[in-house]
Amino acid sequence: MIVAEASYPEDLRYHADHDWARIDPAQPDEATFGITWYAQDTLGEVVFFEAPTVGSTVSKDEPYTEVESVKAVSDVIAPLSGEILAVNEALAASPETINEDPYGDGWLVRVKLTDPSEADGLMDAAAYEETLPAG
């Protein structure tokens, strides 16, 4: 298993439940969601991901899908509210991409945001890293 080193990119917004949202300033009413390096590292190698349905709605702070490692299943929490525009179809065949590239090819869903101002309530990378256990 090849796992990227611990990292928390500056351009993402972070939710306390170890999820990230990437919002392009040129398109502030859409976001891409994924899970953080810490989340995938804690979970272990992801062996199963079933993408949610395109068109379904997600609510900030609520689970919208699951990721499963060998030993456990974990809910994935939506960092923001909206409607799913696209899902990462490639993860069905290679869910381990979530471990290998959690901020890139391991993205989970793309969402049309209901209220882009919700993003103001998310953390920047430094604040999120502060929440993680030392070591």
Partner: peptide
């Protein structure tokens, strides 16, 4: 991401 299944050691 809810990591409830992971315990602090």
């Amino acid at each position: 991401m809810a990591l409830a299944s992971v315990s602090v050691s």
